[in-house]
């Protein structure tokens, strides 16, 4: 007969405990989102993160220990990006015919994201290192971190800002686009993918398959455009 502390320290070492905890938290988050009738405020990711952060805090588990257990889930981010080719393939004809609107929306959305973020932060006198981390925040995490590093921003802060951007986008997109009276799923999805990368794309897929396909392409294209726009906007606006 082992005591509980012994069992805990055994389980806390392997990936089983934190992998299970992540899935359980997500199942609860998903159920909560369904129970709330799909209101964007009760986002499954948000609920799961709050639950897990509480459990980590209460059990005194450092984040690296958790991530080691949850890295199976984390690893799937790459294959899932590749799998975005599936809705893209299914909507390829539509995408080809919407090439011009998509290109215009990409440039407008990407430019708005970078310039307005820097503008607001500059108005409050935020320091240069934080601006460098802020400029690429609408791009998908690995790209944003790469851009921010070349500009002198912190990778950790960039990751924080990228994920917060995704969550904000996932929460505001539906009410905002409804208020603007935009019903075209392509326009809705594409704009959300450009502004809020993978987390926004996840939300778009949840709402509508075609929106999800356009969000995926918006995210991919903005990864490239942000790499070009962010350094330029930072140089022009912050003058360094």
């Amino acid at each position: 007969m082992h005591d509980f502390a012994e069992i805990w320290s055994y389980l806390a070492e392997g990936p089983l405990l934190w992998l299970t905890a992540t899935l359980v938290a997500y199942v609860i988050g998903d159920a909560a989102a369904k129970a709330a009738g799909g209101t964007p405020l009760v986002n499954p990711v948000l609920v799961a993160v709050i639950l897990l952060a509480g459990v980590l805090w209460a059990s005194g588990t450092p984040y690296p220990v958790y991530l080691e257990g949850a890295q199976f889930v984390h690893f799937m981010l790459g294959p899932v990006t590749v799998a975005l080719a599936v809705p893209l393939h299914a909507n390829l004809g539509q995408l080809r015919r919407a090439a011009l609107p998509a290109l215009a929306a990409l440039i407008a959305g990407s430019l708005t994201a970078v310039v307005s973020a820097l503008g607001v932060a500059l108005a409050f006198g935020v320091d240069f290192a934080t601006l460098a981390a802020l400029a690429p925040k609408s791009a998908t995490a690995p790209v944003a971190i790469g851009i921010s590093e070349t500009l002198g921003g912190s990778p950790t802060l960039t990751a924080v800002l990228v994920i917060l951007t995704g969550l904000i986008g996932a929460v505001v997109a539906t009410p905002l686009l409804n208020a603007l009276g935009i019903r075209d799923w392509r326009a809705r999805g594409f704009a959300v993918g450009v502004a809020a990368h993978g987390i926004g794309t996840a939300r778009a897929l949840q709402v509508n398959e075609r929106a999800g396909a356009f969000a995926g392409i918006g995210m991919a294209l903005n990864a490239v455009l942000t790499a070009l726009l962010a350094p330029w906007a930072l140089a022009v606006m912050a003058g360094q």
């Binding site: 609107p101 959305g109 994201a113 108005a123 800002l161 986008g169």
Partner: peptide
């Protein structure tokens, strides 16, 4: 200490970028 301004920048810019992107898409279409 930059928490408030940075959060404001994130909310404003994300909402603006979604609105502008979607409106431009519909307009050009």
């Amino acid at each position: 200490t930059d928490g408030g301004p940075v959060l404001a920048a994130l909310i404003v810019s994300t909402a603006l970028a979604i609105a502008v992107g979607a409106l431009v898409f519909v307009w050009v279409q």
